[in-house]
């Protein structure tokens, strides 16, 4: 299975993290409050913007299994928290809930 992590601005879709375009180490897992994402990334302009707009980010995981339609999972971050640890160069994002969908299920 191929997986992509993407974090975008919810207003218009500016991309802050796209693991298909840049090498990004990340893990995501269930947490007590919903879901937790930890991304190893140096501080840069995109991360600064993500943190500035942290209440308005869309987090996606795209999962592609060969021969099957792509599954998209969208995560509702709400109030996060969204934090950055400069010592660890780690971004941590908590999401409250998620919706799974297959784009092909909708007429577009």
């Amino acid at each position: 299975m191929q997986e992509t992590l993407m974090m975008k601005h919810a207003v218009g879709g500016r991309i802050f993290i796209d693991s298909s375009k840049q090498t990004v180490e990340y893990v995501w897992e269930p947490s007590e409050a919903g879901w937790k994402f930890v991304v190893n990334t140096p501080m840069n302009g995109e991360i600064e913007e993500l943190l500035r707009l942290k209440t308005e980010i869309n987090v996606f995981v795209f999962q592609q299994v060969e021969g099957q339609p792509m599954k998209k999972i969208w995560f509702y971050v709400h109030e996060g928290p969204v934090t950055y640890d400069a010592d660890q160069a780690q971004l941590t994002v908590y999401a409250r809930s998620c919706i799974e969908y297959f784009p092909g299920d909708y007429l577009s």
Binding site: A10, V11, N58, Y76, P103, D105, Y106, S108
Partner: peptide
């Protein structure tokens, strides 16, 4: 195509 929105 299919896309999400929240808090808007």
């Amino acid at each position: 195509g299919a896309h999400p929105h929240s808090d808007m």
